[in-house]
């Protein structure tokens, strides 16, 4: 057992990092608009395919692929907000309606992707070659980069939302859109900004994931459910809570796969989520208000 525990923890850390990147994007939209973007996974997938086309088919290299992938995700994200979320602002059932409309966007994107790129599996090259040793376990340099990158991105987001004018405006709009408008913040534009930023995070995660797993139309949608568990588990809202929950879920998932196998892991994760919500209705790290 000793020989597998460390590699399992490392793979849990990697999973946690990916969940943290995904969940922080979801949480950004949730805290600003109060909706869940079910197309977040599809944006990841779109980004990975565009990156593959630019980098492998056009032969422009991975950096250009990254830029094109993230750019495509941002454009698609802003369009989703404009066409599928904005018409329902102020509606009493906005949250439920946007569950439907963003699910629709997700389906349309996924089907469109399979139509354009076909069923053949694709894979993006790794950002870094070679291996490094982490806690004595060998890890590919690419995976190590993800493990380092995730906390760096989270810190940057934390700094942005806490210290900069536009970052603070996101929080202000999320907490009180009426008052935000009265101090001169353009609320609809801030909603677009939230979607654009969140989509950029989705794009980044998609490209990183696309060189660990095969790029398929379900690349982003598969881990999306777990990323949503992370956001709810952490206690909807704060970035720190979401990040903490991402690593807890990532490590728990890796250990459960080791102990129980892949088959029962998702069920046990859901049971854990329900138990947490029974005893801590505001999430694992949520404040009791």
């Amino acid at each position: 057992m000793d020989g597998v525990l460390i590699p399992t923890l490392v793979s849990g850390l990697l999973l946690g990092s990916l969940y943290a990147l995904m969940a922080s994007g979801l949480s950004l939209i949730w805290t600003t608009l109060g909706v869940f973007n079910f197309a977040h996974g599809a944006l990841m997938t779109l980004s990975a395919y565009i990156a593959w086309t630019v980098s492998e088919q056009f032969g422009l290299g991975l950096v250009m692929g990254f830029v094109a992938g993230v750019g495509a995700a941002v454009i698609a994200g802003v369009l989703i907000e404009l066409l599928l979320v904005r018409p329902f602002y102020g509606n009493r059932n906005m949250m439920l309606i946007t569950v439907m409309t963003t699910l629709a966007a997700s389906t349309i994107l996924e089907r469109g992707i399979s139509m354009i790129w076909g069923p053949r599996l694709k894979q993006l090259p790794r950002t870094l070659d070679g291996q490094v040793s982490l806690l004595g376990a060998p890890v590919s340099a690419h995976e190590a980069l993800i493990i380092v990158l995730a906390p760096a991105v989270l810190m940057a987001l934390w700094w942005y939302t806490g210290r900069t004018r536009s970052g603070r405006s996101l929080r202000a709009v999320g907490q009180n859109p009426g008052s935000a408008a009265l101090i001169g913040i353009d609320v609809p534009r801030t909603f677009s900004l939230a979607f654009g930023l969140s989509a950029a995070l989705a794009g980044l995660t998609g490209v990183l994931l696309g060189s660990i797993r095969f790029v398929t139309p379900g690349l982003g949608a598969d881990p999306l459910v777990n990323a949503m568990i992370v956001v709810i588990f952490g206690g909807l809202g704060s970035l720190g809570a979401t990040a903490g929950a991402a690593y807890v879920i990532g490590l728990l998932e890796a250990l459960l796969v080791l102990w129980l196998g892949l088959y029962w892991t998702p069920s046990v994760l859901f049971v854990a989520l329900i138990l947490v919500l029974v005893f801590r209705p505001n999430g694992l790290f949520g404040k009791a208000t």
Binding site: A172, Q175, S179, A180, L182
Partner: peptide, 10 residues
Amino acid sequence: QQGNTLFGDM
């Protein structure tokens, strides 16, 4: 605004 709570967590 009247009786404004502004941004509670800021």
